[in-house]
């Protein structure tokens, strides 16, 4: 039996009983898929990537309303 190490950027490796690497996807053209990271508050559950995208969109929306447009003067 071995344990799986879920790495970042799509790499993973199975480590055997003696700590010897028996399989690696680091050089494989097929990237490994891991379960991902989830955030939860009560019944609310969201994947970390989706959460980041939503927060970034909200920040961009707020900045678009707040920041002045360059090269123009405000006029009604």
């Amino acid at each position: 039996m071995g344990r799986q190490i879920a790495g970042t950027s799509g790499t993973s490796a199975f480590i055997g009983m003696r700590g010897k690497r028996v399989f690696s996807t680091e050089t494989s053209p097929f990237t490994a898929i891991d379960g991902g990271t989830y955030l939860g508050w009560g019944n609310f559950l969201i994947q970390l990537g989706n959460f980041i995208v939503i927060v970034v969109m909200l920040v961009i929306f707020g900045l678009a309303l707040a920041l002045p447009f360059p090269g123009t003067k405000r006029s009604k």
Binding site: A64, F69, G71, T72
Partner: peptide, 11 residues
């Protein structure tokens, strides 16, 4: 129009 000179119009 002048109101288009806003970041909200670039998306």
């Amino acid at each position: 129009p002048s109101y288009v000179a806003s970041w909200i119009y670039v998306f």
